Simulated assay, not measured.
Amino acid sequence: MSSTEFRVHHTPAEVNARWKAGAVTGLTLAAEHILQVSRQRVPLDDGVLERSGLASVDPSELRAAVSYDTEYAVYQHETQGLRHLAGREWKYLENPAREEAEVVERIIAAAIERAMG
């Protein structure tokens, strides 16, 4: 019978803290990615809607959000048939979020892997 000896260098609390820090970093990077992709598609007139975009993370809940904050942001996002410049579209946030889902997963996973080192 053979035996193997190993030592644990991190407590469970340390491992959890590193994992969570990586997750927060990954969520932040992923939300910024979606924001940048959506900014390329947001309807453009004077740029106010595009500049109102914000990526945020709630570290305690491990949740990320991307939002646009103008009085017409929802109308522009939800109203099909409005005329937009080439490459600009309705569903300017929903479409990138859906299309970039695998990229978002890879961003978050990579950040967690780096944090776990």
Rank of each mutant, 00 (worst) to 15 (best):
D45W: 05
D69F: 12
L85E: 09
P59H: 03
Y72N: 09
E78H: 02
H77V: 07
G53C: 11
Q80H: 10
A21K: 03
Q80K: 06
L62W: 04
G53T: 01
V42M: 05
V74E: 11
W90K: 12
L29M: 10
Q76V: 03
A30F: 03
G87Y: 14
L49E: 03
A73L: 10
A55G: 09
L35Q: 15
Q40G: 14
L54V: 08
Q36L: 11
R88F: 08
W90Y: 12
L29R: 13
A55Q: 03
A23N: 01
T28W: 11
L29G: 04
A73D: 02
V48E: 10
R51C: 10
S67T: 11
R41E: 15
G22L: 10
A73C: 14
Q40T: 15
L44P: 01
Y72I: 09
E71W: 03
E61G: 11
R63A: 07
P43R: 11
R88T: 08
H77K: 01
L44E: 15
S38P: 02
S56H: 09
E89C: 08
D69T: 14
S38E: 15
G47L: 11
Q80D: 07
K20H: 04
S52L: 04
L85H: 08
V24K: 02
Y72K: 02
R83H: 06
D69L: 13
S56L: 07
S67Y: 07
A30P: 00
E61K: 05
W19Y: 04
S52F: 04
H33M: 09
K20C: 13
L27N: 02
P59W: 05
A55T: 04
V57T: 03
R51Y: 12
Q76M: 09
Q36P: 00
D45P: 02
E32V: 00
V37M: 12
A65Q: 13
D69A: 15
R39S: 14
E78G: 01
Y75V: 12
V57S: 11
L35V: 12
V24A: 08
V37Y: 11
Y92C: 11
G53V: 06
N95I: 10
G22W: 04
L27T: 01
H77I: 02
S56K: 09
L29A: 14
V74A: 10
W19S: 05
D58P: 00
Y75W: 05
A17R: 06
K20V: 08
L62P: 02
A86I: 05
A55S: 13
R63P: 00
E50M: 04
A21H: 01
